[in-house]
Every structure is written in structure tokens, then in C-alpha cells.
Design a protein around this nucleic acid. Structure first.
Lengths: 207, 207
DNA sequence: TAGATTGTTAATCGATTAACAATC
DNA sequence: TAGATTGTTAATCGATTAACAATC
């Protein structure tokens, strides 16, 4: 398989492997078998081997995959070897939880700045970053070449924040608020959906 | 299609529709077309119609789907018409963000209690619920018939919290911490993965 | 050698899409 | 009627799985 666009499913699974592998490396493991990777990622081990072998021979028979090597290989395939800056909208509880977590940093995403409209929050520190007023968003997005915005605002503020992000030139929005938003054409909104996954998991538990 | 187990993909998509529809109803809309539902859920409109029509005729040609009717129909298909109690581990920023959000409540999940090991947090209020000490978990799980636990603790506490949940009789764990955990057989751990979705979305932006 | 695990095949099943008649 | 949107077909493509030889 060459430099063409990957099928949706393959890209989604590679991203998932990458996420698990990053944690596995943090835990100090050097190699991992398709079986073990399967347990963490909920993907069939045969399919994992199939996905990986279509890009090269990454594994050692009888041993498994070298974690470091696999991580850098998948990063290359996904074109995510480099650092990306993101803008976080909302300095409240959810924003603080995201800013304090290593989730983004582990994968090369740098929370460049936190934005809020609340004067009480502006100037304070959230997750080690100064909170800027939303009016500074556009300049920051331009200067720091930001294309991803994360929505961590209350539901009633989500639409306004989306429009602010769009006007500032953001192209991909991750919506962590539980509100639907209308976005201008060309801007992709991804809804983070713990409840959706809950419903899905519960269905298989109940049947 | 009858009372048998749904294919994985169908169940996942139905859960996604349900989540979008719940927000659509909140916004006051009474009907929705497969086209509009597609934009919110990122699922092809033909596939939406296909998924739904395999369970019955829910739509009106030329009009679309009745939001209320569709919500209750999907809930029946997914066996999630009733209320479920869940236990939230962690009264910190992430725990507070989850407890304050309507995400769970919107879908019939009731955060029955918040648990923490920190004596400074126990007894305080998080999202309108008193924080209980983790030692009270087992009793609460039994009394309130809880099968789902949500991990919102720091990564270094995730393994301990998982074992506590398992010992208390929890069967499904949603791990919002960015740490891999080992769980006893029979207990399913779902990893919530914003970073995974970010990587995935970015790949399609970059290619 | 013995054990473990990958890489690969083959076969089946579900997902995806375009297209369009049916019908509100 | 005219416009819109569903329900359904047909055809292709990707996902899934078991099985096993290759090989570390």
C-alpha cells in the first residue's frame, strides 16, 4: 500500500493502535504481540497483523512488534510525525481537565493557548498556560499556525465559540460540549461522544 | 431484522444517531431528514435510511423522520429505554466536568455517586452529588444495582481504581484517564480517546 | 528443537454508494 | 401538481475470521 489515501477504517484503527502503543511505551514495555494489542484496542488480532503488514514487515515472528519502531512507523503513515498546535476554548472545569491531561501532549498536540470570555478567568493560569481573552484568538491562530480548535465551553456558549473559531481561521473543531453547532461549510466538527460509546457498550452487555 | 444481536457497526451507528437526535430535540426541532442527520453524525445518508428501514418504516417521504418517534424507536432497539445508574470514580477537575455535564443524563444515565480517596474531597459536593469515600463503593454498587463505572482519576491512580471497581462488582469500565489498565477477565474496559479521534481527523485533513 | 507469533491466504459477511421508483 | 425525501435495489469494496505455513 502506497502514498494514497487510506480507507476510513484503516486510518481509524491505526490511530487507535498509536494511542495504545504510546501508553504501552510509557509503561515501559519494549515489545507487544498482536494478541496483547488486540486486548487494549478491541480490534481482532488477525486484523491488526493485516493492517500492519500491508505497510511493511514490522514484526518479528515468535516475538511480536517493537513498540518504538511501530510508533514511528504508524506516525509516518498517518503523517503525524510533527507537532501540531491547538487552541482550547474554555477555561472551566472541562478545559482545565483537558489542559492538565497528557492526552494531547502524548500525541504531539500542543495546547498553544486557552481562551475564555470570562474576565475572571482571563489572565489566570489553567494547566500551566495563561488564559487569554477570546479577542486574541485570531492573532494567535495566525501566528502559531493553528488549524485545530477544541470546544470545552458550556453548551449554551458552544455556537458562539464555534463562530469565533471559524472566523479566526480554524478548520477542524473538536466539540467536547454536549451541544450541536452549526458551522460554515469547509469546517469539520467532530463530536466527542462518551454517551454514544456508553450506549453502544451497554447494548452488547445487555444482549 | 428481529430480536437478534445487531452487527457491531449498526449498533455503533444507532447509538450515534440517538445521541445526535437527543441534542436535536433539545434544540426544539420536530423532524429531521437523513441528509441533516448525516451532517451531524458523519454517516452517509443512504446508510442512515438503510439502517433505520431494516427495523421498520420510521420516516415520511418528502418530510423526514419524527425526532421523538425515532428516539424512542432506537432506544427500544438498543434496549436502553430504562434508567441506568453509574458510579463515577474521581472528584477532581475531570470528574467535576463529567458530573456537571448533561451528557450522561441526556441518555438515561444517572451518576448515582462520586467516589474519591482524597479526604479533602470526601463530603464535599461535586455536580450536586456528595463525594463518598471509595470504601463505600461496594455497598453502593450492590444497593443501587450499578454495572457501569467511569474512571476520571489521575493516570497514576487508574490501576488501583480499576481494581476497586472490579472488586465491587462493576462489569463495564469507561476509562477517561490516559492510562492503560489491567482488568480481571469478564470486565470490559473502554478507552475514551480524544487523541485517537484527533489523529484520525487530522489525517484526512492532511491528505 | 520446541514454542510462540507473524504474515498471508481464502472465504464470507457487512458497509458503502449511486440511482431511482414510490409516496408524502 | 411539483418538490422533497424515503425505502430499496444492485453492485462494489472493505472488514472480518479461521487456518496455517513461515520463521524468529
Amino acid at each position: 500500500m502506497k502514498g494514497e489515501k487510506l480507507p476510513l477504517g484503516v486510518a481509524a484503527r491505526l490511530a487507535r493502535y498509536l494511542q495504545v502503543l504510546t501508553q504501552v511505551r510509557k509503561a515501559g514495555r519494549r515489545t507487544i504481540s498482536s494478541q496483547a494489542l488486540s486486548e487494549y484496542s478491541n480490534v481482532n488480532p488477525t486484523q491488526i497483523r493485516r493492517d500492519l503488514s500491508s505497510f511493511g514487515r514490522f514484526g518479528k515472528r515468535g516475538v511480536g512488534y517493537d513498540v518504538d519502531h511501530l510508533i514511528s512507523s504508524i506516525k509516518e503513515i498517518l503523517h503525524t510525525s510533527c507537532q501540531h498546535n491547538i487552541a482550547l476554548m474554555g477555561g472551566g472545569k472541562l478545559g482545565a481537565a483537558l489542559a492538565n491531561s497528557d492526552l494531547f501532549a502524548d500525541h504531539g498536540f500542543n495546547i498553544e493557548a486557552v481562551f475564555d470570555v470570562d474576565p475572571d478567568k482571563v489572565g489566570k493560569s489553567v494547566g500551566g498556560r495563561r488564559v487569554l481573552h477570546t479577542s486574541e484568538l485570531a492573532d494567535t491562530v495566525r501566528d502559531r499556525n493553528i488549524i485545530v480548535g477544541v470546544l470545552a465551553v458550556p453548551p449554551e456558549a458552544a455556537q458562539q465559540a464555534t463562530e469565533t473559531l471559524a472566523a479566526a481561521g480554524i478548520e477542524i473543531i473538536f466539540n467536547f460540549s454536549d451541544a450541536l453547532v452549526e458551522s460554515p461549510p469547509g469546517i469539520t466538527v467532530h463530536y466527542m461522544s462518551p454517551a454514544g460509546e456508553l450506549l453502544y457498550a451497554l447494548y452488547f452487555y445487555l444482549t
